[in-house]
Nucleic acid binder design. Sequence first.
DNA 1: AAGCATATACCGACGGTCGGCATATTCAAG
DNA 2: CTTGAATATGCCGACCGTCGGTATATGCTT
Lengths: 110, 110
Amino acid sequence: MNEPTFLILTALAGESQHGYAVIEDVERITGGRVRLRAGTLYAALDRLRGEGLIEVDREEVVQSRLRRYYRLTAAGEQSLATETDRLREQATIAERRLRARRADFGGATA
Amino acid sequence: MNEPTFLILTALAGESQHGYAVIEDVERITGGRVRLRAGTLYAALDRLRGEGLIEVDREEVVQSRLRRYYRLTAAGEQSLATETDRLREQATIAERRLRARRADFGGATA
DNA sequence: AAGCATATACCGACGGTCGGCATATTCAAG
DNA sequence: CTTGAATATGCCGACCGTCGGTATATGCTT
């Protein structure tokens, strides 16, 4: 799973949100690092809907603008949970190796 | 940074390895989930070398087969460390939301 | 002799993201 | 009162990185 996809699922894990709100939420989550392009977002939303990981929650019209709200499906929740575990495991392994590495070289050893 | 790239850097964070050994190491790291394609690996190695994240450590000939060993540069180590932190943060946020979600719906609340 | 593991490397295809644009409304700044 | 930014969805071509296959070569196993 690519990062933008993961971030979109994470955004929707909170509560149902419409597309543009997802863009903002992802920006918040990543501390401003990732601002999804509209093209990326809506394409991913369509794809994820096709894969059954998200679904349309409801549609609203606010100030004559359409808002389509999406929510995570059970499959999407499961998928996000699995991916989260993977991320954690990989981070742990990388960290362990980086630490061992610094112990070897970086260490101002004696 | 994409997952294969991250895994390659992680593999090289351990010790200098030649291409094929990286493929095997990544397979080990991911519990068999990811077996990098040769095309992916060597293309990524070239790219990472171009970006200055890895460099050629040495070359050996074992059983008349060339082995080109790569190692992480300081920039590569830094890059991997940063990416690892990101992964951790994102995993933490996703986990928090998933937990909150289960508390709301899953929870057999009373 | 065939097949698998080792080892590097190229190639076309493909998927997903990027960046830009179109559309439409509301609000603030000039 | 017009320009620009923010909100909101969506399409499109370009691009990057990976996939899958192939080529090349050697050595071991069956």
